[in-house]
């Protein structure tokens, strides 16, 4: 009996040790990849053509889904705010509520989640396929650094495009809120837009543009890391795709918490 308990204990301990080792290895490898991808920005060759190509694919091609996401989220916020604000006789403050919620939080986060689903999965699948078909080995055999050629352009493009997509998402959300406010809640357009403009402060806009820079970095690097570590043929590519979306979404949400804390602290310190 005692031996059985000891065996189970050893197994559990062994499992935990292996899991921790794997985690430490992943963190180390991810940090190394990120560091090298960033360093490549400051040396040649920079593969500008690839950067522009990915900016188009990540940014321009995502505009449509971001427009829809932002618009409907703003519209839903408008409808839901009516319920909450009516109790206090403050339905006229809908513009403030929609603008603050979107610009401070929902715009950056929803844009990041949509891009993680659409672009992150695509990057992981593409790089994963290149690994299993030995295209990465071929690149190295032909004298090209895969991190410089494949990872850095995707990282630069995502970090550049995500703030722009967030601006579009924020604007479309406020527009959706206005539609509801004007046509359902009978709030005058002049009052809605005046509320929106007067409510938003520099710190709100700054936070809304700073967060996507971090989210873009996380999404692109996680997707590249997971893609480049793909094993096990086409089945492995599928696993990498899922892992990329899940990991980058959770990491983005976790980063959002810390960024909010930091921004609030900074806002207080700098009196923004």
């Amino acid at each position: 009996m005692m031996n059985n308990v000891k065996d189970v204990g050893d197994s559990v301990l062994g499992f935990i040790t292996e899991a921790l080792k794997a985690l430490v290895f992943d963190v180390q490898a991810f940090s190394q990849l990120s560091w090298r991808a960033c360093l490549n920005v400051f040396s040649r060759p920079l593969y500008m053509r690839d950067i522009l190509f990915h900016m188009d694919r990540i940014g321009v091609s995502s505009v449509f889904i971001i427009v829809l996401t932002g618009f409907f989220t703003g519209a839903v916020l408008g409808i839901q705010s009516e319920n909450a604000l009516r109790r206090y006789g403050a339905v006229s403050l809908t513009g403030q509520l929609v603008a603050l919620t979107l610009v401070r939080e929902l715009g950056p986060v929803l844009t990041a989640l949509m891009v993680a689903g659409r672009i992150g999965s695509g990057i992981a699948a593409e790089l994963g396929s290149m690994v299993v078909t030995e295209q990465i080995s071929a690149l190295r055999a032909l004298g090209t650094d895969p991190i410089r050629k494949l990872v850095t352009p995707r990282m630069v493009a995502t970090v550049t495009m995500l703030p722009l997509l967030t601006i579009i998402c924020n604007f479309m959300g406020i527009l959706g809120g206005w539609m509801v406010a004007a046509y359902k809640l009978n709030i005058s357009s002049r009052q809605y837009w005046a509320d929106v403009i007067n409510t938003l402060e520099f710190s709100d806009v700054f936070g809304s543009l700073a967060k996507p820079l971090v989210f873009g970095f996380i999404i692109s690097m996680v997707a590249c890391y997971v893609g480049l570590r793909t094993e096990g043929g086409t089945e492995g590519v599928g696993r990498s795709t899922t892992q990329s979306v899940v990991s980058s979404s959770i990491l983005s949400l976790a980063a959002d918490f810390f960024l909010n804390t930091l921004l609030i602290h900074l806002g207080g310190s700098l009196n923004l």
Binding site: S129, E134, L139, G143
Partner: peptide, 22 residues
């Protein structure tokens, strides 16, 4: 890796599944 790039110039490899860039 940067030093290996120079060494690899002397080699040509034909991969099992061609490994052409799609």
């Amino acid at each position: 890796e940067s030093e290996l790039m120079e060494v690899r110039k002397e080699f040509g490899m034909i991969f099992q599944e061609s490994a052409l860039f799609d």
